[in-house]
């Protein structure tokens, strides 16, 4: 009897902190079993021994920020039967997408001694803006249970059990008391996709939205509530929306709207400084 060929998996890094691919190494108890189910063919963070493509599954971490990477992702796509992105950077450009709201040339001129050597794009964008993506796994970083579930579902050819519902569902499952209602905390949970297990609210912190906008994220309603009921300043609101998923459309817009409300505040501060 011929042995079934193991499927080949590759892990790729673009502009990112490596935290998401580290989640794969973090699967300490499951990693050996996993390695017996799928051939880890290209995973530079774990081993310099790499196998050539094509690959059955590619996990892509990071955002596209340079002209070289914009080409390299196309190459990765060509070599991959299934392409799954992992993490906030790959989904919507990550924290580095904050550059999208400013002039990146100003940054390079301040940071680098020879800015003319820096070849960078004006914007940091998610992978789906460049190539077709088969599935996006959210999070900053991703949740390792969800990562295993996605790989497992891929191996079995079934749909992964990754819900698109709000973090609120996980708060209730965990027995967290809603801190927005019971403490008046500005929490992004109602507009953020579940997956983290509602970690922050469990420690009495409002959700930071690191899993990105849930489907139908009604950011305007939440913003109105923060402003009217919780007395949140436009600056605080802008920061909440413009952090991990600043370039994800609903959060991008909500942050910009908050910034607009901020203009008088900035003008006042500037006037005081003069």
């Amino acid at each position: 009897m011929r042995r079934e060929r193991l499927k080949k998996m590759a892990v790729w890094k673009f502009a990112s902190c490596d935290g998401c691919q580290l989640s794969l190494l973090d699967c300490e108890d499951e990693l050996l079993t996993l390695a017996g189910k799928i051939k880890i063919a290209h995973f530079i963070e774990a081993s310099r021994a790499v196998m050539r493509g094509p690959y059955d599954l590619s996990l892509v971490e990071g955002s596209i920020t340079t002209p070289d990477d914009a080409e390299r992702i196309k190459e990765v796509r060509r070599e991959s039967r299934t392409l799954i992105t992992i993490g906030a950077c790959a989904t919507s450009g990550g924290i580095q997408a904050l550059r999208n709201f400013a002039d990146v040339r100003e940054f390079t001129s301040i940071v680098y001694a020879r800015p003319e050597y820096i070849h960078t794009l004006a914007q940091s964008t998610g992978i789906a803006d460049h190539v077709k993506v088969d599935f996006e796994l959210r999070g900053c970083p991703i949740n390792k249970r969800q990562l295993l579930e996605v790989i497992l579902a891929f191996l079995k050819g079934r749909r992964p059990n990754i819900a698109s519902e709000s973090v609120c569902v996980e708060c209730k499952a965990r027995g967290n008391i809603c801190i927005a209602v019971a403490k008046g905390v500005a929490c992004m949970g109602p507009v953020t996709q579940a997956g983290c297990g509602a970690i922050c609210p469990a420690y009495d912190r409002g959700c930071y939205g690191c899993f990105g906008p849930k489907e139908h994220a009604n950011v305007n309603s939440l913003r109105a509530d923060w402003s009217e009921q919780k007395g949140l300043s436009p600056l605080a609101m802008e920061r909440l929306f413009h952090t991990f998923h600043a370039w994800a459309e609903p959060f991008r817009q909500a942050g910009l709207a908050a910034k607009q409300d901020l203009t008088p505040e900035i003008q006042r501060i500037e006037a005081e400084c003069e």
Binding site: S166, C168, C178, P190, V191, N218, S221, A224
Partner: peptide, 9 residues
């Protein structure tokens, strides 16, 4: 619907 967050609470 303009106010509802569809968060399911």
């Amino acid at each position: 619907a303009s106010r509802c967050l569809s968060c399911a609470n």
